[in-house]
Amino acid sequence: MAEGRRVTAEAADTPLLRIASVVKRFGGFVVVDGLSLDIRAGEFFALLGPSGCGKTTLLRMLAGFEAPDQGAILLDGRDIAPVLPHRRPVNMMFQNYALFPHLTVRDNIAFGLKRTDLPKVDIEARVREMLALVRLEGLEARKPDQLSGGQRQRVALARSLARGPRILLLDEPLAALDKKLRESTQSELMELQRRLGMTFVIVTHDQEEAMTVADRIGVMDRGRLVQVATPRELYEAPNSRWVASFVGDINMIEGRIVLHAADRIMVDAPDIGTIAAVPTSRPQSADIGVAIRPEKIRLEKFGVAAGDADAGNGGFNRFAGDVIDVNYLGGASVYRIRLDSGFVLRASVTNASRSDGDAMSTGQRVTASFAAADCVVLET
């Protein structure tokens, strides 16, 4: 995750970009609904959400290709909503790269620079700088159809950076790349952003991508921000059932609180039984959801005595069932366990050894357990 990167104290105090109660409608349909957000200088920020949630429309408003119907977009305290796209210190890299097929790599990168007052010698120097930055030296005379997908992506990135924008907007920039190239390009983007100290705002529907590159993530649904948090906070402490289900895999169990103890609650969950959970704050409602990530679940062959971790739960959160299928994913295996209650639980187990001596098989009787502290209590 990228959350180890830190912006400066000055950036943390004053947002570079402030989106204030922005609304965008197309006809009678509200695409962005009263959205407010602060983005700091030097931050790598991700807008994450399903298709149609409004994230690309928001990005286009930041770029100036769409105008908000209400609200303000403030850059360094100045409302840029009325400012034309080419006059904003903001550049956008498009999902399809939008390269000019008849121009060389050099001319594609120089295209925006030629529409400024820069002398020709300065333009040539800037193009050389961009070629070096994205490691495309020696390819400047080629045209886009003579490049690989990854190379075309670098040309588009260099062109977007050539004019030195305050903010770089990236609209699903890695969607067209294969998995291996996408992973290596993610690392390159992160390193580039660190070196430049520039603010990057990326739009993606790929949760893994957002959690890899971003300092913070804003999750959108139906035109609204539903949670803004670091990758770890978003994954480990989602603020609603919807966010918990959207980000990563989850076991969601509905129940009712029957006891408030000093450090935990007891939940009567009809689908599974009694659950002990440790909430981060006292729930205001008795009816709650208890979310458990698959990797937090411990599997043992049936009949094995409870370990120290299970003993800490006072005998709770330990359920018997049968393995109904196994998905081997290389680094981990994902099991579906049908508990004796009929509820199907998903568990992810790291494949720490090359041998399969500890692996469970379909039809095997097992015990699934989890710690009370690993339960996320959700009221909405």
Rank of each mutant, 00 (worst) to 15 (best):
N351H: 14
S355K: 06
S348V: 04
A320I: 12
D356I: 08
G312E: 04
R354F: 10
R346G: 03
T350G: 00
A309T: 14
R318S: 11
N317I: 03
S353F: 06
L339H: 13
S353L: 11
R318H: 04
G357D: 08
R346S: 15
G315F: 05
L329S: 03
R338D: 07
N327I: 12
L345K: 03
T350H: 02
D356C: 06
F319C: 11
R318Y: 03
V334N: 00
D325A: 05
D325K: 07
D340K: 07
S333M: 04
T362I: 12
N327L: 14
D358G: 05
A352R: 15
G321T: 05
T350R: 04
Q364D: 15
V334S: 00
S355V: 08
G330K: 12
R318K: 09
N351R: 15
V326Y: 05
S355R: 10
L329N: 04
S333N: 12
T362V: 13
F343G: 05
D322I: 05
S355D: 10
I337V: 15
D310N: 11
A347H: 06
V344I: 15
I324N: 06
G357V: 11
D340C: 02
N317Y: 02
S341M: 05
A332V: 10
R336N: 07
D310F: 03
N327D: 12
V349C: 02
G342F: 06
Y335F: 09
A311R: 14
V323F: 00
R338G: 08
R318L: 03
F343A: 08
Q364H: 09
R354N: 14
S348Q: 15
I337P: 00
R365T: 11
N313F: 04
A320C: 11
F316K: 01
G363R: 11
D322E: 13
G314T: 15
G363F: 07
V334P: 00
A332C: 03
G357H: 14
G330A: 06
S353K: 10
G315T: 01
A309E: 15
G342T: 09
D325R: 13
F319I: 10
N313Y: 02
R336E: 11
N313E: 05
G342S: 09
R336K: 08
Q364P: 12
A332N: 08
V334C: 00
M360I: 06
A311K: 10
N317C: 05
M360T: 06
G357M: 04
G357E: 11
G312M: 03
V326P: 12
G321R: 01
F316D: 00
G312R: 06
A309K: 13
L329W: 03
G342H: 08
S353A: 11
L339F: 10
S361Q: 15
T362K: 15
V349W: 00
A359K: 14
F343P: 07
D340W: 00
S341K: 06
D310K: 01
G357S: 11
I337T: 04
I337E: 01
V334K: 01
A309N: 09
G357L: 09
Q364F: 04
S348H: 07
D358V: 07
D358Q: 09
R336I: 00
G321S: 08
N317V: 03
A359Y: 09
V344D: 02
G357W: 08
S341G: 07
S355A: 08
A309C: 04
V349L: 05
A332F: 09
R336M: 01
G330N: 08
F316V: 01
L339C: 13
A359N: 14
R354C: 02
V334E: 02
F343N: 01
A347T: 14
A311G: 01
